[in-house]
């Protein structure tokens, strides 16, 4: 775009964009501000700066939401999901991108269809089935559920990375006597590793934040994820909003730091999975 916009247009543009920044940041600022306040001051005025900074909100949040345990549960579940999604999806994405099997179209359509299936369509039989098999409160079982739900997205994203690899590389390796597995493992995977990292980040974000499946399948005290533990703390056990916002910040902060550091990857990956970017 050439710089022909008038000063007035530019002024209006920046005012509107500024208002949208304000709207976006307002609830986030409220969260940070009140996480540092004693409960009394939250009630007096949620917009005011804290008169004294109450770090003990964080320590009380840590104890009451049992974050030592629940953050660990979330981390384990997230890690399991990332490993499962990245291994299974990169295999499938390679085969679909290179049309290695005759049924590649059927498989692709099937996966696309499941991305739009409502969770409720499979949740109830799955829950009662898992209950019968004793898989409720089992993080490995939940990681498999996440894998089923997230892998179509991961496959569609990874597929574009595999498509970008020149075919000649593969052919050259085959002529040199590499087996099909070696072509995939030694030639293709290293080239698409940036794509795998992007998928790992986004799937990690989704599993860390997930609510519906986690709250349904992980209900015992020692299996709760951090998000579900926060949900219970803020709903039942506490009316101290200083403490609740501190708990929120503990869950959000690592994600925001990671996002700010790697924002290009996040944005391109999340946007690229739904639209070709």
């Amino acid at each position: 775009m050439t710089n022909t916009e008038s000063r007035l247009t530019l002024t209006i543009t920046f005012i509107v964009l500024g208002i949208l920044v304000f709207i976006t940041l307002f609830p986030i600022v409220l969260m940070v501000l009140n996480a540092l306040k004693p409960a009394v001051e939250v009630v007096q005025n949620p917009l005011a700066f804290p008169s004294e900074i109450r770090w003990d909100n964080f320590s009380r949040a840590w104890t009451d939401a049992r974050f030592a345990q629940t953050l660990m549960n979330s981390a384990v579940l997230t890690a399991l999901t990332i490993v499962l999604v990245c291994t299974t999806s990169s295999l499938t994405a390679y085969v679909l991108a290179r049309k290695k099997i005759k049924s590649w179209k059927v498989v692709t359509f099937y996966l696309l269809a499941t991305t739009t299936a409502p969770i409720q369509l499979f949740l109830f039989p799955l829950y009662f089935g898992f209950a019968k098999l004793g898989l409720i409160n089992n993080p490995i079982a939940v990681a498999f559920v996440y894998t089923a739900v997230y892998s179509p997205f991961a496959i569609m994203l990874l597929r574009t990375y595999f498509l970008a690899v020149p075919k000649e590389l593969e052919e050259a390796a085959l002529i040199d006597g590499a087996t099909h597995w070696q072509v995939f493992w030694r030639v293709m995977l290293p080239i698409v590793s940036p794509g795998i990292l992007t998928v790992a980040l986004i799937i990690g974000l989704y599993s860390w934040n997930e609510f519906l499946i986690a709250t349904t399948f992980l209900q015992s005290q020692d299996r709760l994820t951090a998000v579900v533990s926060f949900f219970l703390l803020s709903g039942n056990y506490s009316s101290d909003w200083g403490q609740i916002m501190a708990a929120a910040l503990i869950i959000v902060l690592p994600i925001v730091v990671l996002f700010v550091l790697l924002q290009r990857r996040f944005i391109e990956g999340m946007a690229g999975g739904s639209v070709k970017g």
Partner: peptide, 9 residues
Amino acid sequence: LPIIIATAI
């Protein structure tokens, strides 16, 4: 930013 914050939060 809002999309990366957990819906529960």
